[in-house]
Amino acid sequence: MVFEGLLIIFTKERYLDLFLEGLANTLILTASSFAIGFMLGLLIAVERLYGPRILRAALAAYVETIRGTPMLLQLFLLYYALPSAGIAMSALTAAILGMGFNSAAYQSEYLRASLRAVPSGQWEAALSLGMTKWQAIRSIILPIGLRSAIPALSNELVYLLKYSSIAYFLAVVELVYAGKIIGSETFAYLEMYTLIALVYLVFSLLITRSMKKIESKIMIPGLAVTAERT
């Protein structure tokens, strides 16, 4: 079936182009939304742990709102509802931002758990040396906390790869959308979707493998993994 799907792609140059465009957009969606999610997520995690009280409450509300509603809904708000407020953007941009904002909420939770799990003695030792609060966060808490968050972040990356398929609903030409077009022209839905499923699977495994490699490279004896995504 996978093989037949591959054959179909190669029957017309247009199909191959569509398929490759889809793959490229899927990877762009995944990588960019992960990057946005990481930067915002780290900011949220640090501010929720060490920031001023009002900001903590506001960020907590943000995280809970995102986690309590579907990602699809969030993308629709950005793409279809914002233009009435005068903010319009391309479907791809809306999808990247929507996924990024969504991921920020989840990543902030993993990072917060990891940072909080850094033993309090590390804090005390850093402060006792004369470090300021932000020096201690930067040179001690973050390097330890970020390392133990790697498995959770790696799961999040795989999660985003799969959920990039939601951009289909905004007519972004990612893998599923490309498959749908080719499938509807050739009536070989089963073959196309099976092929696409396999592509996701292969990339999920690739991500998991390489993150494990990164982890083992920068892991330090005695550091525990704290957060795990289910």
Partner: peptide, 12 residues
């Protein structure tokens, strides 16, 4: 200077 019961060496 402060020396802790649990050493508190920076783990990383």
């Amino acid at each position: 200077g402060f020396v802790f019961q649990q050493f508190n060496l920076f783990m990383h």
